Amino acid sequence: MAEDILFNPGDAIAQNYDYNAVMRSAEIFHYQQHPQQFVLVQAPEDACYAVFRIADAAHIKEQLAPLRRYQIVKRL
């Protein structure tokens, strides 16, 4: 069963249709920034991968920006 999470698409650290390119970007960002928790997600509508900080996850009550539902592929 897939785990869904909501994010504002503008908060993405990296976004691409290529899984390996997104993973590479996430690893570089993780190395340059202090270790934080990230998730690699996939948009079910268009199969695009993206990386977000877990701290940027949207809470349903705080819908100030347009949110998009993603499925978690991997926690980093």
Rank of each mutant, 00 (worst) to 15 (best):
M1D: 12
M1W: 11
M1R: 13
M1V: 14
D4G: 10
D4W: 07
L6N: 00
L6W: 01
P9T: 01
P9S: 02
P9C: 06
G10V: 10
D11W: 00
A12I: 04
A12G: 04
Q15D: 13
Q15G: 11
N16Y: 06
N16L: 07
Y19R: 04
Y19H: 13
V22W: 08
V22K: 09
V22P: 02
V22G: 14
M23S: 13
M23G: 14
S25L: 15
A26H: 12
A26K: 13
A26Q: 11
E27P: 07
E27Y: 14
E27D: 11
I28V: 07
I28P: 02
H30S: 11
H30Y: 13
Y31C: 14
Y31K: 11
Y31S: 14
Q32G: 15
Q32Y: 15
H34A: 03
H34I: 08
P35F: 04
Q36V: 11
Q36W: 10
Q36S: 13
Q37G: 00
F38I: 09
V39K: 04
L40N: 00
V41E: 00
V41N: 00
V41I: 00
Q42I: 09
A43L: 00
P44T: 05
E45T: 02
E45N: 01
D46V: 11
D46T: 10
D46I: 14
D46F: 10
A47K: 14
Y49H: 13
Y49E: 12
Y49T: 12
A50I: 05
A50S: 04
A50Y: 00
V51T: 11
R53S: 01
I54P: 12
I54E: 09
A55S: 12
D56S: 01
D56I: 06
A57R: 10
A58M: 12
I60V: 15
I60L: 15
K61N: 08
K61D: 07
E62A: 12
Q63C: 04
L64K: 14
L64Q: 14
L64M: 13
A65D: 09
P66H: 08
L67S: 03
L67E: 01
R68M: 00
R69E: 12
R69F: 01
R69N: 09
R69Y: 10
R69P: 08
Y70G: 05
Y70V: 03
Y70P: 07
Q71R: 04
I72C: 03
I72E: 02
V73G: 09
V73N: 09
K74F: 07
L76A: 06
L76P: 01
